[in-house]
């Protein structure tokens, strides 16, 4: 469809439909909506990337805010684990947002394409550890009291957890914050491996704490986009409503959907959208 020729209301409607679908797929694949939203909407919709990144952040933020209470009440997220790391991530996400808005759009688009393709590769080859072994917790993690007992509702068992490599995790979350702010991505795809594989946090607690942590990191970056005027309500509101309704359907389908197939579908979507972003940034496919 020719963007200029179409009536204005077509695009919010299509956006609602697409984000509704993304909401379903994101829940089934265990990823945040932002990582799919930014490259797909940035690559195939007429909105400028500046607005799409602002919307992506608000989308990820809304999802994290909505999920947060349940995660905290159910013990699936740990406030004491998230808070120090979220502080670092939120500071660097401000820097990322400022950098993203300062760089030429072709540079951001190209870097986005490379990042999305890297995420697809990460998802393809990612290892996971249900209950990682932490032989001896490090001093910083101990000082910050990053330990506890996690009750796994699936197995009914209580799992004692502690962390190691905390200084390295701080550095990792600083980098993740920059990427989240610069590209408007939720960054759950990066949080979970850092919690789980680097720090040794049980997988389910890693996923839940990542979901909560996004609500802090994305808030600070979102304010930069809001204050710069890079938030278009006509883009943001239908997307948030669409992805939240889609996520509700996704949760219902969670028991019956073939998870491995959905995950492969997400990787393919990321490959297509990442390639599109890269080629658009390089001026090969506009």
């Amino acid at each position: 469809m020719e963007a200029a020729a179409a009536p204005w209301w077509i695009w919010p409607l299509v956006l609602f439909a697409v984000t509704f679908g993304l909401g379903i797929v994101a829940v089934l694949a265990g990823v945040g909506g932002g990582v799919l939203f930014v490259p797909i909407v940035g690559g195939f919709f007429p909105f400028h990337l500046d607005f799409v990144r602002g919307a992506g952040l608000l989308l990820a933020l809304s999802g994290a805010l909505a999920a947060g209470p349940g995660l905290l009440r159910g013990g699936l997220a740990s406030l004491r684990l998230a808070m120090p790391l979220a502080l670092v991530g939120s500071i660097t996400s401000i820097g990322g947002a400022l950098l993203g808005l300062a760089l030429p759009v072709a540079t951001v688009q190209t870097a986005l394409g490379v990042t999305i393709l890297a995420i697809a590769a990460l998802m393809w080859g990612a290892r996971k550890s249900e209950h990682p072994e932490v032989a001896s917790p490090d001093a910083l993690g101990t000082a910050l009291r990053m330990h506890g007992v996690f009750h796994d509702p699936a197995s009914g068992k209580d799992i004692e957890w502690k962390v190691h490599r905390t200084p390295a995790a701080f550095v990792a979350f600083a980098g993740i914050g920059v990427l989240a702010g610069m590209f408007g991505l939720g960054a759950g795809w990066a949080n979970v491996p850092v919690f789980n594989l680097m720090m040794g946090v049980p997988l389910k607690l890693s996923v839940g704490t990542s979901g909560f942590l996004l609500s802090v990191v994305d808030t600070s970056a979102a304010w930069i986009y809001i204050n710069r005027g890079a938030v278009l309500p006509m883009l943001v509101a239908p997307s948030i409503i669409g992805i939240m309704l889609g996520a509700r359907i996704g949760v219902r389908l969670l028991r019956v959907a073939p998870a491995a197939m959905v995950r492969r579908l997400v990787i393919i979507l990321l490959l297509v959208a990442g390639t599109r972003a890269l080629l658009k940034g390089l001026g090969v496919w506009n």
Partner: peptide, 8 residues
């Protein structure tokens, strides 16, 4: 629709 594709 005429302005949402413009740079910020």
């Amino acid at each position: 629709a005429a302005v949402w594709s413009l740079p910020l």
